[in-house]
């Protein structure tokens, strides 16, 4: 009991210390926040009314973002099928799935925007670095999901096919795949939604898509145009979510 009380006290002290440290050492000038009111109003004022003349750019950027998400998701799916198999304890030995799982965790730990910046450096500006970045980043999650789908199926039919003389890949195809197919469909759609959402901002680092226009208009102080693009992005996210809810109901 004593020890628990001390533990609670120590945790509180630690949290308070962390908050205090952040306040003191970061330049949080609350005075600036006080005087920011008029400036924010001015900023918002310059955003309104949103400029509808950028419709063509919005359509062009959205279409490119959609293409990046589609091709990036395709790349991630193609990479995730073998990696998912190699990360499942049903299909391979511990000596194989352990290092593959570590590799996937490492991939997941790298933020997408960082991968995109590196890819822009490697292959130049445009949608290609965006596609590669999405494919790479999404594989970290999707291969893990596929492995979990393989390991989540009922084992009895696998044993039955083994008893009938079927090899490991034949068992995967005829005993595991029919059971995991709906899970794979759901997970892939979920990851596609995330890819589309995340690829909206890729243009900010020059990796293609609608984010390019937000960055361009903000940098050149054309806030009314930036506002139009922002509204388009918000509408797209809402639309994606609507489609996804409908699809999830279908695959539930």
């Amino acid at each position: 009991m004593r020890l628990r009380e001390f533990g609670g006290f120590a945790a509180s002290a630690l949290i308070a210390g962390a908050v205090l440290w952040s306040f003191v050492t970061t330049d949080v000038e609350l005075s600036r926040l006080m005087s920011a009111g008029p400036r924010i109003a001015g900023f918002l004022g310059r955003m309104f009314p949103p400029d509808p003349t950028v419709m063509a750019e919005i359509m062009k950027g959205s279409a490119e973002t959609l293409r990046i998400a589609i091709l990036g998701s395709l790349g991630a799916t193609v990479l995730s099928i073998p990696l998912g198999i190699l990360a499942s304890e049903t299909m391979v030995s511990r000596a194989v799935f352990r290092p593959i799982r570590m590799l996937l965790a490492f991939i997941r730990a790298i933020p997408l925007i960082l991968v995109a910046m590196l890819m822009v450096g490697a292959v130049g500006l445009g949608p290609l670095p965006g596609i590669i970045a999405i494919a790479f980043h999404a594989t970290g999650m999707l291969a893990k999901f596929y492995a979990e789908a393989i390991d989540g199926v009922s084992r009895a039919p696998i044993a039955a096919l083994e008893s009938a003389g079927a090899g490991p890949l034949v068992r995967l195809r005829h005993a595991i795949w029919p059971q995991m197919a709906p899970v794979v469909a759901r997970d892939t759609i979920f990851r596609f939604e995330l890819n589309l959402r995340e690829s909206l901002i890729l243009g900010i680092v020059g990796a293609g898509g609608i984010g390019f226009y937000i960055q361009t208009y903000v940098r050149s102080f054309q806030y009314d145009k930036a506002a139009s693009v922002t509204i388009a992005v918000v509408l797209m996210v809402i639309a994606i979510e609507g489609i996804n809810v409908a699809l999830r109901r279908r695959f539930a």
């Binding site: 039919p157 039955a160 096919l161 008893s163 009938a164 003389g165 005829h174 005993a175």
Partner: peptide
């Protein structure tokens, strides 16, 4: 292995596949 056939107590069928598919699984 095909020379010995086993009928499992809990059937061990692939639930989402058709009857014919499951029977053909015995041919694999």
């Amino acid at each position: 292995r095909p020379d010995t056939g086993f009928v499992f107590q809990e059937f061990a069928l692939v639930e989402r596949s058709t009857v014919l598919r499951n029977v053909l699984n015995g041919r694999l």
